[in-house]
Design a protein around this nucleic acid. Structure first.
Lengths: 287, 287
DNA sequence: TGTCAACAAAATATCGACAATTTGGTACTA
DNA sequence: TAGTACCAAATTGTCGATATTTTGTTGACA
């Protein structure tokens, strides 16, 4: 089914009578419409929207993802949402346990440390292969992505929310372009999963302390090394690039990281409950 | 919903009137019943059954996983099956593309080569950490798992199907026990995904050429090195262990690997179609 | 006062039906 | 002989309703 282009849907993509029960999403509207047109299926739409919500921290780490609530907010059926959530398990952004529904995966500095450690491996593997294989189109892609990233006015960056979003997108695109010529599908997959997870932490880091100054110089150095086909240098710089984010975030107290994003709105999602910790006296009545 | 223990299901776990339309699964019955009791939910049941089916090659690599057919065979609703399939995407055993449904991921010697390469990394990372952290319980687990594996009569192995299954299970359990003390969740996750994928190839290798003689000596050597806390040696042996499987499979012609398991029954699943290759003249009518 | 059982409310998992799209085939046109 | 438009069948994606389980609360009883 086509969500955006569908001519006459039976159900209700935009239920006319739903109106006031759910307040219209504030800063999401623009992007949602965009995504709804991109997505080939409603599942994909829900998937992308959820993913962004988690990465940006609107869906707090550890919080329960209640089907009914999200279903209403996104305007899709429960099974559709459920499937989108199942797909997110592949990205290690959501966990699904037995009869307890879905949950955003927790955040912690130890987790991030591990992510960075593995990310250095995968990123350098991918980069090395990309540098070895990359043709002229690859070079063009890298240069282009860097240029777009560079166009952003870094001085005004901390003032505008939208600008930060744009920066994040272009930053992502740049790093993606660097490894675009890597053909190993497994390396790419793992790298991608790790990157998305790291994004969550970076988002938090930016929300707390702004964008690290001089980051563009790092990007430039990595790009130049890559274009010069100096794999060793490019990898070393990439590793430092990753480490700097880690050290930056490690400055913040651990509980603040686990708590997620304090300033951002928690759009209708329950806070993480300590359900697992509470022992239940009543034994589950299983025959 | 509880599948196994449910007292009075509304639907039809075992639809009484379904009878002859779908032939009763031959060698699956035993295991299915087993799994149905294990699983906390029907989704989990379908998930496990699909996973085993893919690993064993009953669901051929590249083949389309048609909802309706599987749904009837497993006796679950379409959304349930769908969700199970979505979960399998996390394991990189199934792909889901846009409006084209689900598909078993392809097999190839290049893919296996890459899996082995990454597996050596992850396996040694996990093993090193496990050796460093492992306590007495860990040692006991390793010794126990090895013992169970060793109990299998390796001489009669190639004669009995059931015995091979048991061997595979215990082999899995042994390798799992070795890394049980590794605490890095990401390493464990990746290792596990890679292991399951490698299992598919190993299954094929065994189906074609039987179990490699002397494998038990390798297992013993790895175990002894691990218990002696000689991480370097244990890792080196593990890498060799992985490489041997790779070299074994590399002997077979490439097309045989891509084709999957020739001898095994293809339980009602369509062969891989070359849909992607066929160009469609008619443009998709999108407004 | 604290444990346990029964009950009510909330949330999850499951189902089957239906809508929309892809697939495969056939006939029409150049 | 392509190429293309058009239909029928097969298949996928979506929906909303219902069964089942988990969670929370209240009240009896030791």
């Amino acid at each position: 089914m086509r969500p955006g282009q569908a001519k006459s849907m039976s159900g209700s993509i935009l239920p006319p009578e739903r109106g006031p029960s759910i307040k219209p999403a504030e800063m999401w509207d623009e992007k949602d419409r965009h995504h709804r047109q991109d997505a080939k299926t409603l599942i994909e739409y829900a998937y992308k929207r959820l993913k962004i919500g988690i990465i940006r921290g609107h869906l707090a780490p550890g919080s329960k993802l209640k089907i009914e609530r999200l279903r209403k907010e996104y305007g899709v059926a429960s099974s559709t949402l459920r499937e989108a959530l199942s797909l997110l398990v592949a990205d290690s952004l959501v966990t699904a346990e037995g009869q307890q529904g879905f949950r955003v995966v927790q955040m912690s500095i130890e987790d991030f440390r591990e992510i960075c450690s593995l990310r250095k491996m995968m990123e350098t593997l991918a980069l090395r292969e990309s540098i070895a294989n990359g043709d002229e189109d690859w070079e063009a892609g890298v240069v282009g992505a860097f240029h777009k990233l560079n166009l952003i006015d870094f001085k005004r960056l901390n003032s505008s929310e939208a600008l930060v979003d744009a920066y994040n997108e272009r930053n992502h695109a740049f790093h993606e372009a660097l490894v675009a010529a890597c053909r190993s599908s497994w390396v790419r997959r793992f790298r991608s999963v790790l990157y998305d997870n790291a994004r969550r932490y970076r988002h938090l880091s930016v929300a707390k302390g702004g964008i690290r100054p001089g980051i563009q110089a790092e990007h430039r150095a990595i790009m130049e090394a890559a274009l010069a086909r100096d794999a060793d240098l490019a990898c070393r710089l990439s590793e430092e690039h990753i480490d700097l984010t880690l050290h930056r975030l490690a400055q913040f107290p651990a509980e603040e990281i686990a708590a997620g994003f304090p300033g951002l709105p928690r759009r209708g999602i329950a806070a993480p409950t300590s359900a697992a910790a509470r022992p239940r006296a009543r034994a589950a009545k299983r025959s």
